[in-house]
Write a protein that binds this DNA or RNA. Structure first.
Lengths: 229, 229
DNA sequence: GTGTGTGAAATTCTTCACAGCG
DNA sequence: CGCTGTGAAGAATTTCACACAC
């Protein structure tokens, strides 16, 4: 949290390439998490090879990814952990807290939040929503909770820009529309149905647990096959 | 669950191409979920366009993906939902239940399980593990729970082939080694560190929530940029 | 006409290889 | 020397376009 190049005027950050490829973005996020721990432990420098091992990629890939950053390493001795972390943060816009809300105050939603909060992910949860509010979880949430029909209003008032959807079933679409109407521009969707928003200014990240479980099952089933290196 | 071509002798399933690309695999898993609901509702046929809309892809992509299956559609009227579902299931090895365990009986782990069970994902949870077992959650798990040091033994005895890791911090590696030693061949890792196993027969799927949250944050931050269509 | 199946083109991403700096 | 930075080659994936089937 030291020499960041002023978050209020971030256009200088884009001195290099324009858009970052999706896979690179995901890896950089992982790198950021990792650097967070590393700096806390007081490590001063790290090499691309070491970073690669930590995030499950080759050193080639890591260096290539860093080429989208303005920050540069030092030939022969690697990267300054603090500077690198800040460079990643500012390039990715993670240096400012994002005001977020959770839709679906069920076990999964609350668990995720606890997880995310624990690892200080740059999100500040400021509201929770749920279709039926007579649940006990109202107490545990730790933030003000509202019924779903107040989404638009609360999102606007609280200047929320990111939403996490964890409701199990029902009309995600309607919820999403209310969110977007209120001003949300990013949605992490954990519901078991794909959400798509026409509005190009709104980014949706559809995660599919069950799918990911199945992927592994499938890989298992194919593991015992004869050929194919 | 009707005319599957005998899971005990699955080599006929590979009459087409050998290996399925990762992205295709993920989409097929989504398709499978979707077809499950569809068949329950009694829908008889569906077109590639409709499937595409449901899983967030184009009809091109869907048809291309299906080209890895033996099952084929009917020109002019789409696909038979039941036959297609069974074809996907058998090609992906989802027609047999996989015996699974959960390592990390915390809020997140239990929530995920509830979720997965709700949508009958083909996994049967048969055991739970946790480093400290004096937790109350022992009661809620609904399956026998054991301390971590019994992993290898229990995994072997219960013939567990898939594990889900949700422990928050600490030595994932050690846990993973015990799992593999016991006979686990697939791991879904939700811990905030990348797990890598040398053994080529073991498949690991590293999921990173916090990363996925950050990805959206980053996309938000870049949304307001000038050019780049 | 409507909708599938698939080689081929276009794109995106990864890996390589080597110049250059500390 | 060890390690970074990056254009260029290579591989994987998506998109296209059109022949063919119902």
């Amino acid at each position: 949290m030291k020499n960041i190049t002023i978050p209020a005027m971030p256009y200088r950050l884009r001195n290099k390439a324009g858009r970052i490829p999706r896979p690179t973005l995901e890896r950089l996020c992982r790198v950021y998490s990792m650097l967070g721990e590393l700096t806390l432990r007081g490590e001063a420098t790290i090499s691309s090879k070491e970073i690669g091992e930590a995030i499950g990629a080759g050193s080639h890939t890591v260096r290539k990814d860093f080429s989208y950053l303005s920050e540069t390493g030092i030939s022969g001795s690697g990267y300054d952990t603090v500077r690198l972390r800040d460079a990643v943060a500012s390039r990715l816009g993670l240096d400012s807290e994002t005001r977020a809300c959770l839709v679906g105050l069920n076990q999964l939603g609350l668990a995720l939040l606890g997880h995310a909060r624990m690892f200080s992910s740059g999100l500040t949860l400021v509201a929770g929503f749920d279709p039926n509010l007579n649940v006990v979880e109202t107490i545990e949430a730790g933030v003000p909770v509202y019924p779903s029909y107040e989404i638009t209003e609360v999102v606007r008032r609280e200047r929320i820009t990111l939403a996490v959807i964890t409701v199990a079933g029902g009309n995600i679409r309607e919820i999403a529309e209310r969110l977007v109407q209120g001003g949300v521009r990013g949605i992490v969707n954990l519901a078991p149905q794909v959400l798509k928003i026409r509005d190009a200014g709104v980014h949706v990240n559809n995660l599919d647990f069950i799918g990911e479980f199945r992927v592994v099952s499938a890989l298992l089933a194919h593991a015992g096959r004869p050929a194919a290196v």
